[in-house]
């Protein structure tokens, strides 16, 4: 979707904020949100990233990174019926009024063992498909000029631009939101090289290139 998360090439965000000796988590709640987001067995309908991207642009910009995570996971759990909005509102009210109280404690060493296995589990390669790839290394392509309302991994700054395929990554699940009622497609994935001038015109810096991966359905052939 064409929203604020797709910010490659934008002006106006100023200098890069840099913190020496930055901690992994800046507050205890960030780490706990990370763990809950990754290890609660309740999915996010439509996908975790899409749920973040659907935030109103002003809210997206205002929320910190782990606030976005918490928002998307909480919304997903509400939609999946893991708890109700009323239960959530009551809990928030309770902890607002009782700041010294901590959440209840439950332990289960079997679950810890399972979580650690999942943390290190080698991710399987995605399944090969019978259809041969339509492009090969060296082919000139143009990234599609497309504007899907769902999640896509084709950023705006590449759309309509000409590039060259420099590597073939075999088949991967396409992350884009599939049409209603359909599964995610599995497509060939390619590494595309774009010259700086193609993307940024006369504003490009000298000797600048961009590499980005693209699913086959993002590409048009240039004759």
């Amino acid at each position: 979707m064409n929203s604020i998360h797709d910010m490659g090439g934008m002006h106006g965000f100023g200098e890069i904020p840099y913190e020496e000796n930055e901690p992994v988590f800046h507050a205890a709640w960030e780490g706990r949100v990370y763990a809950m987001a990754m290890y609660t067995p309740v999915g996010v309908p439509g996908g975790f990233r899409y749920m973040i991207e659907k935030m109103a642009p002003a809210a997206y910009l205002d929320a910190s990174y782990y606030e976005k995570w918490m928002h998307a996971r909480t919304q997903g759990m509400l939609e999946q019926g893991a708890f109700t909005q009323k239960e959530l509102d009551e809990k928030i009210e309770f902890f607002k009024n009782n700041p010294e109280v901590m959440p209840p404690v439950a332990t289960d060493s079997n679950r810890v063992e399972k979580a650690l296995k999942a943390m290190y589990k080698q991710q399987p390669a995605d399944p090969a498909q019978p259809d041969p790839p339509q492009f090969k290394v060296g082919d000139a392509i143009r990234a599609k000029n497309m504007h899907p309302v769902g999640h896509t991994r084709l950023p705006r700054y590449c759309r309509g631009k000409r590039g060259v395929i420099t590597h073939y990554y075999e088949y991967w699940w396409v992350d884009d939101t599939p049409p209603a009622g359909e599964e995610h497609a599995i497509e060939p994935l390619y590494r595309i090289k774009f010259e700086g001038k193609e993307l940024w015109g006369d504003e490009a810096e000298p000797n600048q290139v961009l590499y980005i991966d693209m699913f086959e359905s993002y590409l048009d052939r240039i004759a």
Partner: peptide, 23 residues
């Protein structure tokens, strides 16, 4: 955010969806 994170953790632990030691 800290309050909302505590509320979420309390709900998930009470409903057995995650345990404190996993977090």
């Amino acid at each position: 955010a800290e309050i909302r994170a505590k509320a979420l953790e309390a709900l998930l632990v009470e409903k057995g969806l995650i345990t404190t030691d996993v977090i």
